[in-house]
Design a binder for these strands. Structure first.
Length: 294
DNA sequence: GAAATTTGACCAGA
DNA sequence: TCTGGTCAAATTTC
């Protein structure tokens, strides 16, 4: 089994490296407009965002493949000696009530705009990092049954595998704005309470203010488990327009959608000749501008 | 002092 | 019996 998954892990690392480079490029670009004395061309933003998006999807697809392989292998022959493979599809992945969760992968941050209260932590076999258990802070105030489980990835410690269980019923009343507002635009520095992220033992994206990525997949979603179906329209619109201006990157992508948003290669390679992106790039890029980046 | 976090214990499922 | 999930008392932080 390890034979089948190790190359995937290597590929994941390579893609992650490429992604880091793209992030760095984006950070550099973000610092340039003032120096260049002109507004950042959207085409360049689009390109960097496209690169990041492709990397995210590739990583998500690879991760999915790794976990599928692990699951299949365990069905055939349980082997506890796989350091980089974790139990991800067994019944234990589900909530105690047998419910199924929505899994989200996040980089650098485990924040999602909701206010969570940590109620448990558990060392997990085959995992270097403990698993954290959170419930909605409004559980007692509003009877909100939403829970989430956060696991730091062994392969890429900057990635948090977050699984959501239950629905946020706390968002249906007057405090919906308070709760959901940070979801729309979240650069990771959005505080959830008194400027402090709830239950974040690891450095979040506060340092650079960037919500680096979020890939998501519907682990197994049944009707009524859609955590944020009220965001579906917004997500669809963003996906259609495919204008990945960073501020508009929705944290909720995929969480409440019936299908994974990162369909393989979907929208990854749409910088064709005559495409606006290329037009913008060719129109705005210059050697002078590039020299500023060095 | 209140709220949040930590952590050991307990419980349930495989 | 082992492992993951949750509880709840103790501890920490604000």
């Amino acid at each position: 089994m390890a034979v089948a998954t190790r190359p995937s892990c290597a590929a994941s690392e390579l893609i992650a490296k490429g992604r880091e480079s793209a992030e760095f490029l984006r950070a550099l670009l973000g610092q340039q407009p003032a120096a260049a004395g002109d507004e950042m061309p959207h085409g360049i933003w689009n390109l960097t965002e496209q690169i990041l998006r492709c990397c995210d999807r590739a990583l998500a697809a690879l991760q999915d493949g790794i976990e599928d392989a692990a699951s299949d292998a365990r069905k055939r022959k349980p082997e506890p000696d796989t350091d980089d493979l974790r139990m991800t599809s067994s019944k234990r992945m589900r909530g105690s009530g047998g419910e199924r969760g929505t899994r989200v992968e996040k980089k650098w941050t485990m924040e999602d705009g909701y206010i969570w209260r940590k109620y448990g932590q558990k060392e997990i076999r085959d995992s270097k990092y403990p698993r954290l258990y959170f419930r909605c802070t409004y559980k007692e105030d509003h009877g909100c049954l939403a829970r989430r489980r956060v696991q730091q990835s062994d392969v890429d410690p900057s990635v948090f595998l977050i699984t959501y269980f239950g629905e946020h019923t706390c968002c249906s009343d007057n405090n919906v704005d308070d709760v959901l507002a940070p979801l729309v635009i979240n650069f990771g520095s959005s505080s959830t309470r008194d400027g402090q992220p709830s239950g974040s033992p690891w450095p979040s994206c506060d340092d650079d203010g960037l919500l680096v990525s979020e890939t998501s997949e519907i682990y197994s979603l049944s009707e009524g488990e859609d955590l944020r179906s009220d965001k579906g329209n917004m997500t669809d619109e963003l996906m259609e327009n495919s204008t990945p201006v960073p501020e508009l990157e929705p944290e909720t992508e995929g969480m409440g959608l019936p299908q994974p948003w990162w369909e393989p290669l979907d929208g990854c390679l749409d910088w064709e000749l005559g495409n606006d992106i290329l037009f913008d790039f060719g129109e705005f890029i210059s050697y002078d501008y590039l020299s500023l980046l060095q």
